[in-house]
Write a protein that binds this DNA or RNA. Structure first.
Lengths: 342, 342
DNA sequence: TTGTAGGCGTTATCAA
DNA sequence: TTGATAACGCCTACAA
């Protein structure tokens, strides 16, 4: 049961462990012949170095980790793929770690950083509200990528890369108004959301204000807490209630594409049509927003750009080229078939 | 920069390292008072044990890993959540690891098993064709969960849990035929697929045969290799070509829901309707198949059941209650709005 | 170019 | 109930 170790390989080859170690790690000071022979023996005996031992001994490691909160979010999949590609370009290795919803991402990060001797960390998704003190314990460079930030956090405590949720939300609602809509419902985050959800709501309000449309609390529909947030099921449930209230809504702005699709389902089920009876707009620009029928008007996040800049920023941090960077990128209003002019 | 260690804590508390170790690991032989004090100091100094060191020293570990191939598959998300829940029920800890498409899952597993002293492994997704010799190197119990298996692999080399892809595929095509369809196109896997894709194709053939419908090679459309497999984009591209060929197809059976949705897009784009001009059926039973408009007729895999039984089987293996188990569960033909009788 | 020996942070053994 | 001390498997001065 007990595995073969570097010592066994050394003995098998009639050399010292150092030499084997050199062979494994591509060190320069080694005779090519002995190296070849060692590698041969390693292959034959299926020797696999124990990573725990390596990590324990090593001080540096050339690996960065990506901690994802809410891995069920299809929006992240693409981001992760780009992360992986970019990190490999830098000849670093990449560790993807899923963080449970109820877990504290910083705790996970601290532990992982120690274990793997991480050079840097990307936090993807989730909200983020940690004390300065806690952030300092994580003495590894990190970047927040499209995570919701609370207003309480001081900007000089972290770096982030994302879109401007306020502005993009404003853009969409402004567009809907320009189509002639005035009774625009919103599928929003919960009452106590202090990050993305709040910003998108502010954008909505601002657009209304610009056009002199009074804000009507009844049109703001919060996601249900007992259903997975940002999901199609949630959008469906919320919209069903909305329609029952007969508020004469002509457009619905959902803060995610999945919510928007759920909303469409509820509308169809009520015997109405999208966009004829009610326009629906989403947010994110997932593939499905394009493939859905009707295709969904949405705010398309610049996924590749966001991911690339996240990694670039992280490495700038690692190489101490910057102290902190705060980048926001413009998203694109993609007009499709789920919205129409009144 | 260098972190605080167990030795520091011991010194700080005026006790030996062993005692601190006992406190950390909830060992019985320790005075409650000293333990409380130690934990207090640990809190204050934010001491976090180094996992590499722990794993290096430990022999057992009560952790099982789930290796996912193709994390972009939304079908797996739900499975993973159930895995996590079930594993925690057993008071084991859970490690989720993503495996790159081009990486060999067994190699990853072997390395991880060593590093983390794994008790067991679940392989989720991907195909599986490994030599017996290689499988034996992984001397840790494992279960293949909804992975494609090749006919070349001997059943007594592994355990698996999945649906019967042949039977379920047959069920769907048989249903389509019962609706009066005879010209049924299939969006299938690549030519050299030897696992799920092949089984589903065999099911299709069998159903045709049962009803005396001749098999027409032109109706079998393989996923494009240059587009992500099983994706909406792939279903769209393939269907577009199919429609151009004007083969008078009345129904399309796609081997995944995503492919089916892509197919619908292509049909709509051609100015036709689903199901009026062409019925479309999928496979998997993803949420989106329900929310799509029209809702998609599909084969719904019993996700929860599959996941639960996977973990149950894994622990049976770990506890040596069984040598190998091969479980297939029935999936459900869910009839919805994307198919109609001719 | 190669080998010896010490240490990385923890847990397990055994004696006190 | 506690504490030295020897592993765990690897890497890396340092010496040869």
């Amino acid at each position: 049961m007990s595995s073969i170790t570097i010592v066994d390989i050394a003995r098998l080859c009639g050399v010292g462990v150092t030499t084997v170690s050199r062979a494994i790690n591509n060190h320069p000071d080694i005779n090519e012949e002995t190296k070849a022979k060692i590698m041969q023996v390693i292959k034959e005996h299926n020797y696999v170095p124990n990573n725990s031992a390596r990590n324990l001994k090593r001080s540096d490691s050339k690996t960065v980790a990506v901690l994802v909160k809410g891995i069920n979010n299809p929006f992240f999949m693409r981001m992760i793929r780009v992360f992986e590609k970019e990190i490999q370009k830098k000849r670093y290795s990449f560790h993807l770690q899923h963080v449970d919803d109820q877990m504290d991402e910083i705790d996970v990060a601290i532990e992982l950083a120690k274990e793997k001797r991480l050079k840097g960390i990307v936090f993807l998704g989730g909200y983020f509200s940690h004390t300065k003190e806690k952030l300092e314990r994580l003495n590894v460079p990190f970047v927040l990528s499209t995570v919701g930030l609370t207003e309480y956090m001081n900007q000089d405590q972290y770096s982030f890369v994302s879109v401007d949720d306020f502005k993009e939300s404003f853009k969409m609602v402004d567009y809907l108004i320009s189509l002639g809509h005035r009774n625009i419902a919103m599928i929003a985050a919960g009452e106590n959301d202090r990050s993305i959800g709040k910003l998108r709501l502010e954008g909505y309000k601002k657009a209304l204000e610009k056009h002199g449309i009074p804000y009507d609390e009844r049109l703001i529909r919060r996601m249900k807490e007992n259903i997975e947030v940002y999901s199609m099921a949630n959008g469906y449930a919320v919209t069903k209630e909305l329609l029952e209230d007969e508020l004469d809504v002509t457009a619905i702005f959902a803060i995610s594409d999945s919510l928007a699709i759920g909303a469409c389902k509820a509308i169809f089920e009520a015997g109405k049509k999208v966009p004829d009876d009610c326009s629906v707009a989403g947010f994110d620009g997932l593939d499905i927003s394009y493939y859905y029928h009707p295709s969904i008007t949405t705010i398309k996040q610049p996924v590749d750009r966001l991911a690339e800049e996240t990694i670039k920023t992280l490495f700038d941090l690692i190489n101490k080229k910057v102290t902190h960077a705060h980048l926001t990128f413009p998203a694109e209003l993609v007009i499709r078939d789920s919205t129409r002019a009144l």
